[in-house]
Amino acid sequence: MRVLIIEDDMILALSLEIMLKKMGYSEIRKAHTGEKALETIVDFEPDLMLVDIFLGTGISGIDVVKKVQERKKVDVIYITGNSDEYHRKQAGETDYLSYLVKPITYTELKKVLEKDNAQ
């Protein structure tokens, strides 16, 4: 399974990558902006995206997901500091597996991924 981490905080992106590798995922790429994520998706074609909503300047993580899901089904887990109703409603306009609020733990992420793999 190919996983794309879309996260502007490089330390958190690395932490997520380490968690995924510990779970056995090996095909992992990272993008630190929405624009870079869209470029990466063209060649990498992820099966799963871990997406931060606010990526600094440029397009948001939700916008990236909307653009990708126009063309193909990709599983999405939002991992964000934005727990307010406005962002949850925006995320609700996309198809996603889970909406996790930072900080997240290895156990939380593993539980969501195991639930998805069981379906």
Rank of each mutant, 00 (worst) to 15 (best):
V3Q: 03
I5P: 01
E7W: 04
D8S: 09
I11E: 11
S15F: 09
M23C: 10
M23W: 12
Y25G: 12
S26P: 06
S26Q: 14
S26F: 13
I28D: 06
K30S: 12
H32F: 15
T33V: 05
K36Y: 06
A37V: 11
A37G: 14
L38F: 09
L38I: 11
E39L: 14
I41H: 02
P46T: 09
M49Y: 07
I53R: 01
I53K: 00
I53M: 05
L55W: 00
T57I: 10
T57G: 15
G58V: 13
G58C: 11
S60K: 03
G61D: 07
I62D: 02
D63C: 06
V64N: 06
V65N: 01
K66M: 10
K67N: 12
V68Q: 07
Q69L: 07
Q69D: 11
Q69S: 06
Q69Y: 04
E70V: 11
E70F: 01
R71D: 07
K72G: 13
K72R: 15
K72W: 08
K73L: 06
V76H: 01
V76K: 00
V76T: 09
V76I: 15
I79N: 04
T80E: 02
G81D: 00
N82M: 03
N82F: 01
S83Y: 07
E85K: 07
E85A: 08
R88K: 13
K89N: 11
Q90D: 14
Q90T: 02
E93M: 14
E93L: 15
T94C: 14
Y96S: 05
S98T: 02
Y99E: 06
L100S: 02
P103M: 04
P103K: 00
P103I: 03
T105Y: 04
T107L: 14
E108H: 01
E108G: 03
L109F: 01
L109T: 06
K111L: 14
V112M: 12
V112Q: 14
A118S: 15
